[in-house]
Write a protein that binds this DNA or RNA. Structure first.
Length: 552
RNA sequence: GUCCCUAUAGCUCAAUGGAUAGAGUGUGGGCCUCCGAAGCCCAAGAUGCAGGUUCGAUUCCUGUUGGGGACACCA
């Protein structure tokens, strides 16, 4: 049986919860075999305390010991060295969990910190090692409107960027515009515009019929130029929609076409050739993807197999040049791409290529968002740009509202398929849980408004000791750890669930306890608590991009 | 055929290998002389199937069945 070594470093007053928890983790880690990460988490059930750790279970497993005995040792060590009065109770529960109850004093101290830090509560300004991140998301093709499926990437990317920045990372957001003149989709778009083909049948009804001037102008151009001009027109409309209606601002829009103007396509090719990663076959130039684990080699430059396209770069090459630009020209420390599931099969080759060029695997992450399956009254609706039956995101937002749409998309993990019934979207939007959260915020504001400004002191927080009081504080103080976790695991939907849980704790408090009408001392203390809830709800909703109504 | 995602309550979704699998919605029943009832409380209701690893599996592995998707010198 091993015993614990090392000391718990007690922080000075005022107690800082995050430091104490970190100390516990560090103490445990010192005593645990490498590769085992003990976890401290907020258990779902109240009776398991404010925080809980499985450290003893992990430690005992590694050492083949008895978890209950190991837990006892850990508890001895912690209670020996923790600041006096920090914990109310520490308990060991079978099969070996250690449950911590913070003392009312600790909880109340944390509330003081919330009131003091306000909009900064939960944020961090620690300089992270993998700072300077480029986050690319949405990047819808400029050949049509933003559709409902794009909504996932849009809201997810935007919220993730907010969270990463809040957590202290340096992040730039970017939108990649696939508008290269040489690409087949732009050419086909042009042919459709001048009436030489009908690859994009909705172009007439969506764009040209509404804009005769543009139609006339395009008809004078070659199909290639018409495609480029139309793509730029569509992109302009899409960007306007993204910025004005979705209220998503990007740091940059990057044009695919610019990679040709700057000759970065050629230099990317040169780089690959110099590293001997290419070969010629059947008149095309190939990347040796198999050498890096891909199932087959991939074409970089086309052969004359398709008339008129010999020597043209594939999308793979332009996309690779774009990522070379991210890493080597602009020198981002890390790139995160958010892609729709229809591109998932394409992810490996890009990863292999960047790996071949020396980019460490963990510095290039691709997050795949799964499909949104559309139905109408239970019947599935197929989205096909070609057929012209497009369900635009704009139409959806006009029907259900931006907040409800955002909340719905963000509530689901990126990797899960979601079903969306258009027919019931509006009806369901009235029951959208976003209103549950916003209503909690409105109730906070209502109490604060009624109490009036300036007439009350912060109050004696030690009077907050009912079940509802303490439970509410318990929810509040989870916020910083929540942010920290999401910045690492990108599980944005956890923040949505947190918003719901905090709101629930508040609604419960609201039903069972009084603020106005309590004795003056208690009313002051509860007012402070309500202000704390308002602060954390505001921080949460702002990160998610949900509006904060004063009245509903 | 190969590969990726997925299967949890009537429906839509949660659950970094942990404790009695949570919410919303729907269904049934309660709560406003009291800070806004867009709220609160109570009830019934679920891990596709078969094995394996583990003190412990919704989670990991194998097989199987069903759903979605990708397999271009399109993007």
């Amino acid at each position: 049986m091993q015993s614990l070594s090392g000391n718990f470093i007690a922080p000075l007053n005022p107690y800082k919860l995050s430091m104490i928890l970190q100390n516990i983790i560090d103490l445990i880690k010192k005593n645990v075999n490498r590769g085992i990460e003990p976890e401290i988490f907020a258990p779902e059930q109240e009776k398991f305390g404010h925080y809980s750790t499985n450290a003893a279970l992990k430690l005992a497993k590694a050492a083949r010991g008895n978890p209950m005995i190991t837990a006892g040792e850990i508890v001895d060590k912690i209670s020996e060295t923790a600041p006096r009065g920090f914990f109310e109770k520490i308990e060991i529960a079978p099969p070996g969990f250690i449950n911590f109850w913070l003392s009312p004093k600790t909880l109340q101290n944390e509330l003081k910190i919330i009131l003091k830090q306000k909009q900064k509560y939960g944020s961090s300004n620690i300089k992270h090692l993998t700072s300077n991140i480029l986050l690319e998301f949405l990047s819808a093709n400029p050949t049509g409107p933003i559709h409902i499926g794009n909504g996932r990437g849009a809201f997810f990317g935007n919220a993730l960027a907010n969270i990463l920045k809040f957590a202290g990372y340096k992040v730039k957001t970017e939108y990649y515009v696939n508008n290269a003149r040489i690409s087949e989709q732009i050419k086909n778009l042009g042919k459709t515009a001048v009436g030489e083909s009908s690859d994009y049948p909705y172009v007439q009804s969506f764009y040209l019929n509404k804009n005769q001037k543009l139609k006339k102008q395009l008809s004078k151009l070659s199909s290639g130029e018409a495609g480029y001009e139309l793509a730029n027109h569509i992109q302009k409309l899409n960007r306007h929609f993204i910025e004005k209606k979705l209220q998503i601002k990007y740091d940059a829009f990057f044009n695919e076409e610019s990679l040709f103007k700057s000759k970065e396509i050629e230099s990317a090719l040169k780089l690959l050739k110099n590293k001997k990663l290419t070969y010629e076959k059947d008149g095309a130039l190939w990347f040796k993807a198999q050498n890096f684990g891909d199932s087959e080699d991939r074409v970089l430059v086309r052969s004359a197999r398709e008339a008129g396209r010999a020597g043209a770069p594939t999308y793979f090459l332009t996309d690779l040049a774009y990522h070379i630009n991210k890493f080597f020209k602009r020198k981002f420390g890390k790139a995160i791409d958010i892609w729709g599931a229809d591109h998932h099969g394409y992810a490996p080759r890009l990863k292999f290529a960047l790996k071949a060029l020396g980019v460490k695997e963990e510095l290039f992450e691709i997050i795949i968002t799964q499909f949104v399956r559309l139905s109408a009254g239970g019947k599935e609706v197929k989205m096909s740009k070609r057929k012209g039956d497009i369900e635009t995101l704009e139409k959806l937002i006009d029907e259900v509202g931006l907040d409800a749409a955002r909340f719905f998309f963000l509530a689901h993990s990126a990797g899960s398929h979601i079903d969306f019934d258009i027919k019931f979207a509006k009806e369901r939007s009235l029951k959208n849980p976003v209103y549950y959260v916003q209503y909690a915020y409105v109730r906070c504001g209502s109490i604060i408004r009624k109490m009036g400004n300036g007439k009350w002191k912060t109050g004696n927080l030690y009077l907050l000791k009912t079940r509802e009081d303490l439970n509410l504080i318990r929810q509040l103080i989870c916020f910083p750890k929540m942010i920290e976790d999401i910045a690492k695991n990108y599980q944005v939907h956890n923040l949505v669930r947190y918003a719901l849980e905090l709101s629930r704790a508040f609604h419960n408090f609201y039903e069972k306890e009084r603020v106005i009408g309590a004795s003056q001392d208690l009313a002051e203390a509860r007012l402070a608590l309500v202000k704390g809830v308002q602060i954390v709800l505001k921080n949460t909703l702002e990160l998610l991009g949900i509006s904060l109504p004063k009245r509903m």
